[in-house]
């Protein structure tokens, strides 16, 4: 089985001195100070710190980490939305920085915030998305109904503005949008955050189905340990931008002792490795 994604010593920081206003750059002393974490100065944040891993074709690979651990930044780097400061990424052999269009043809992404034109209906939004990927209108209209029904969305809501839909429903439309282009790699950035338990299971079932039926490679970020455990074949634990462990959920659990005589969970592993708890249910705002 070939490698779908290779991430090799990727490094990304934000708040670099280059972002200092031009007039401050003229005053060298100020520019140098901005590298520090002084009061009122830009702080240099390393979002992804020399991260390396490989995702095999057809694998569901999880990246588990708390808010601010670098998960979304990592997804954006693979999705051609950010450029790395160091290291390299290959997506089926293509470099996202040098061959963005080749990579973009192979991937699609669902982010934690379902981003849509809120006045437009799911049908109008998905038509727009599908045409960007070279799909025709007739073919798309048929598929939209099919996919949204598969995700449990009522047919009459397909033509209502997105702003009238719940967050869970919007997230399902976001997943439908990603599925429409039939990507070889699907990047799921906390796709089930904010969904009710039933919707969460529906989405998880679709993820499994995609892998089984279409052989889609899936890179999933989450801070839901149960989700990582039931969906992913391998999980990388990310903490402060670094991979602190990477293995199958079963093998990861061998890294931590059990609590109160019970076998260890992924949460125990995380606490054991990082000394802190994961926070569920929070929206991640990182990489900006």
């Amino acid at each position: 089985m070939s490698d779908a994604i290779i991430v090799n010593k990727v490094y990304k920081k934000f708040g670099k001195p280059a972002e200092t206003p031009w007039w401050k750059l003229l005053l060298k002393r100020d520019a140098n100070k901005s590298k520090t974490n002084g009061k009122g100065r830009r702080r240099l944040v390393t979002a992804v710190d020399h991260v390396s891993f490989k995702v095999k074709e057809g694998e569901i690979f999880g990246v588990l980490g708390p808010n601010g651990s670098g998960k979304s930044t990592l997804i954006r780097l693979i999705a051609t939305l950010l450029l790395p400061d160091g290291g390299g990424i290959r997506v089926f052999g293509h470099d996202p920085e040098k061959e963005p269009i080749k990579v973009q043809r192979l991937i699609n992404r669902v982010s934690v915030e379902a981003s849509f034109f809120k006045k437009l209906s799911p049908m109008e939004n998905l038509l727009y998305g599908a045409r960007l990927y070279g799909m025709g209108g007739k073919e798309t209209r048929k598929k939209v109904v099919e996919i949204l029904n598969r995700l449990g969305l009522e047919e009459n809501s397909i033509f209502r503005p997105m702003e009238e839909m719940s967050r869970g429903m919007q997230q399902k439309v976001a997943i439908a949008r990603a599925l429409l282009s039939r990507p070889r790699i699907l990047l799921l950035d906390e796709p089930t955050t904010g969904l009710d338990p039933v919707s969460k299971r529906e989405v998880q079932a679709v993820v499994r189905e995609l892998r089984e039926q279409d052989g889609t490679t899936i890179l999933l970020t989450t801070h839901d340990m149960m989700e990582a455990e039931v969906l992913c074949e391998r999980v990388a634990i990310l903490h402060k931008g670094k991979v602190v462990a990477l293995d199958t959920p079963e093998k990861l659990k061998e890294l931590a002792p059990g609590v109160d005589g019970k076998p260890p969970t992924l949460e125990d592993v995380f606490i054991h490795l990082t000394g802190r708890k994961l926070t569920n249910g929070e929206l991640e705002k990182e990489g900006a």
Partner: peptide
């Protein structure tokens, strides 16, 4: 404004 900028700029178009 709509929050769709990343989606559009990620599409495989020139």
């Amino acid at each position: 404004w709509e929050g769709t900028i990343e989606y559009t700029l990620m599409a495989p178009i020139r």
